[in-house]
Design a protein around this nucleic acid. Structure first.
Lengths: 339, 339
DNA sequence: ATGAAAGCGCTAACAG
DNA sequence: CTGTTAGCGCTTTCAT
């Protein structure tokens, strides 16, 4: 029978430090919080007392009076999607980079039924100071819930309906144009595209951006098939496209996942990639690398975007009345073997 | 100039509810906390008052008196390693599965210089109730720091030196035996292994387990080269192995990462996998899939293990005096094209 | 079964 | 510049 480990002793409190230093609690508090108007000698005394007592401020007591939890939530899309994707880690990394130096905790959650209400409750209970929402589906009630509660939130991606909410996004139009320019530079003239769902901002913007850019290259009427950002929908869409336009030699697919579904279909129809058809995706997700051949794709500066979201959120926490803002980042093209 | 959004109103407090219900704060508190000894009728009244006021208990005030933060930390290995790996998401998933139903928050951190001290401080400040540490390197001071502080911690992986600390691990020996049995079943008799660093528990156990199992298959003297769990070390190790034993036809590599480094070397030396040499890895990490050909490997039940770590941690939080425990899980073999 | 009162540890007016 | 004082919102004896 192993010896029970004694519970750790309670840390010292402010009064204990005050007693040791021979001053009042208020003075100790001032020293702890770095208030400038404390006599240098006294400060020294207090600091000594702090280190001899091993004092650490109790966070609950502090939160109770400051009304700050000192932590924000990161809400990721439901389990399936993101968990495997390196994208996930890049987001965490970006957020942690700005949050940690400020001593703010990152609480991780995945979206699901009831998550919205839970997050709102946590915010109202003072357990959370704000939330960063990653890629909520357009049907997701979460953003609405949070904005309605007038609580600090930042969204990834422009919301479907214009809302007084802060968000960060990549320039979708510019990203699609990058793809278009690349395909044109490869000398392809029989170009088509598989778009995302046209009831989403990303779906719309990527299609519009691609068409506009191709028009600038002298191809005003690029055919397109609509997909749903899933692998299967990509396969189905390319099937339709090939039926109507068997001679395509350049293809922009509005998400890597759809491209991943489309490539095997191309092969089955005897098209070699990139020789017969060059293919460009969007997202630079893990599926871009899982593609055969590896996919040329449009990449978002995920870490930077995540960091910016964190910054915007903390600003919002510090200045509650602040109006909503939005920041748009420039995408880049990652060239691999598919083009 | 957009209109400033008014700050959200402060939520109701216990006294407000008490006033509305015409009872004392104590009674409301009892209702909120589900104390059984409250008159049914009164309880109803109070519940009505709670919902009309939209009352939510303030978490800081509660924490201050209960001395529970209601959140635990998940400490992941330094940024590089894990971020891209799906392993990461599986761990989060497992922990979230047990933690969320209990209303406990998951605070995410990555290990780095100063992380240990920070986590200890957070625990002592009452910001955190405990910590789950994932795969800390053997040189990592973190576990020692935490156990020394007698704070609730659970480790992934048996610690290098026996310590009074709770940990969860996969049965490394059994995993290596799985690999051995599989290689033997493939009819290979000129078998070798690339081990991990022999100053780590995993390194030792995987080698010992593999040798013992191969001995049972009539091969008592399996040659081995030591690696360091990195891709380069795997490449170097297989180079040495081929020099001394050019006729190997079966190879167990104690980590996928090392296997990932070893495979190109095998190819360069004219060995086809799996025809000339079957290769089995360990971990089922993302590099197993990135291998060419995809790697047969030993898989840990990561979600289950993570969930168990969370459970053990929460137990420890609830019962501070509780002695350390350890739980060992059974691995499985994932067969892919490399064998 | 309910209420009164004390106190968790800290910050922030307000005096001095 | 420092000390006194009054809470922050909640749980929890202790009486009743």
């Amino acid at each position: 029978m192993p010896a029970d480990r004694p519970a750790p002793p309670r840390p010292a409190t402010l009064d204990e430090v005050a007693r040791v230093a021979g001053v009042s609690r208020a003075t100790v508090s001032r020293v702890v919080n770095g208030v400038a108007t404390v006599d240098a000698a006294l400060r020294r005394t207090v600091e000594r007392a702090i280190s001899t007592t091993g004092y650490l401020p109790n966070s609950a007591a502090r939160s109770l009076v400051t009304r700050r939890a000192g932590s924000i939530a990161l809400v990721l899309p439901e389990q399936g999607r993101m968990l495997g994707d390196p994208f996930f880690g890049r987001v965490v990394d970006g957020v942690l980079g700005v949050v940690r130096p400020r001593g703010v905790h990152l609480v991780l959650t995945t979206a699901g039924p009831g998550t919205g209400e839970q997050v709102v409750a946590d915010l109202r209970q003072g357990r959370l100071d704000g939330a960063v929402l990653i890629h909520t589906h357009s049907a997701d009630p979460l953003p609405a819930l949070l904005t309605a509660s007038r609580l600090p939130v930042v969204l990834s991606g422009r919301p479907a309906t214009p809302t007084a909410i802060t968000w960060v996004d990549v320039n979708q139009t510019a990203g699609a144009a990058l793809a278009a320019d690349h395909i044109a530079a490869r000398g392809r003239r029989r170009v088509a595209t598989i778009s995302g769902p046209l009831d989403t901002p990303a779906g719309q913007d990527r299609l519009a951006g691609f068409r506009a850019a191709m028009a600038a290259h002298g191809l005003p009427d690029v055919p397109h098939a609509e997909g749903a950002f899933t692998g299967e929908s990509g396969a189905a869409a390319v099937e339709r496209l090939l039926a109507e336009h068997p001679d395509v030699d350049g293809l922009f697919v509005a998400s890597d996942l759809m491209a991943h579904g489309a490539l095997p279909v191309l092969r089955r129809h005897g098209r070699r990639v990139p020789d017969d058809v060059v293919v460009v995706g969007f997202d630079d997700s893990s599926s871009a690398l899982a593609c055969d051949p590896p996919l040329t794709t449009v990449r978002q500066p995920v870490e930077d975007m995540a960091a910016e979201m964190a910054r915007l959120l903390l600003d919002q926490v510090d200045q509650p009345g602040r109006p909503a803002r939005s920041v748009v980042f420039a995408p880049t093209l990652v060239v691999r073997e598919s083009s």
